[in-house]
């Protein structure tokens, strides 16, 4: 037995592109030792509602009769706060659906990150400007306070910011 040969490998890619001025398409593709799957959602701006969804799922031993039937349950869900609970709840918690559900979530995260990128690109390059930029981000979106190591109390980014009640 060679120690260097992988027992399992996976590659997951999520990409987001505009379809038109008010629609974004997010696609998540998974290829691993056992799985070949793809989920695609269309999200309408500005309210970020999922307006179309489709997918394929092939697995070594898991059989999904019709992944598209399950996927249609997330139509109308809004990409944003609280979406994970809603998506999981609508798609169900059957083990066979774990990956399909996760891929819908990844598509949604892709949308959020694509929009986040548009903001982050405006961050100043110099250190002082960056501190001010991200500190303002926390001030404007107080929910970010203490949401990660960077925005924890005591960091330079949260100095002078009152914790949310």
């Amino acid at each position: 037995m060679s120690e260097n040969i992988l027992k399992f490998s996976m590659n997951r890619c999520t990409s987001v592109e505009p379809v038109d001025e008010t629609t974004l398409k997010s696609v998540c593709r998974l290829t691993d030792t056992f799985t070949s799957a793809c989920v695609e959602i269309l999200v309408r701006l500005p309210d970020l509602e999922i307006v179309a969804v489709q997918g394929q799922f092939h697995h070594e031993w898991r059989q999904l009769s019709d992944p598209n039937e399950v996927l249609q349950k997330v139509l109308g869900v809004r990409v944003g706060s609280g979406m994970l609970k809603i998506i999981k709840g609508l798609m169900g918690d059957a083990e066979d659906l774990d990956q399909l559900t996760y891929m819908v979530e990844e598509c949604c995260h892709g949308i959020i990150l694509a929009l986040t990128r548009d903001i982050l690109i405006k961050a100043p390059v110099n250190q002082e400007g960056k501190l001010e930029f991200f500190s303002k981000m926390v001030r404007d979106n107080i929910r970010l306070y203490n949401r990660c190591a960077a925005f924890a109390p005591g960091t330079r980014l949260t100095q002078g910011i009152e914790p949310p009640q």
Partner: peptide, 11 residues
């Protein structure tokens, strides 16, 4: 507009 790639290998 955005792309995220994740690669995992297990030995």
């Amino acid at each position: 507009k955005f792309a995220r790639n994740k690669l995992v290998g297990v030995a």
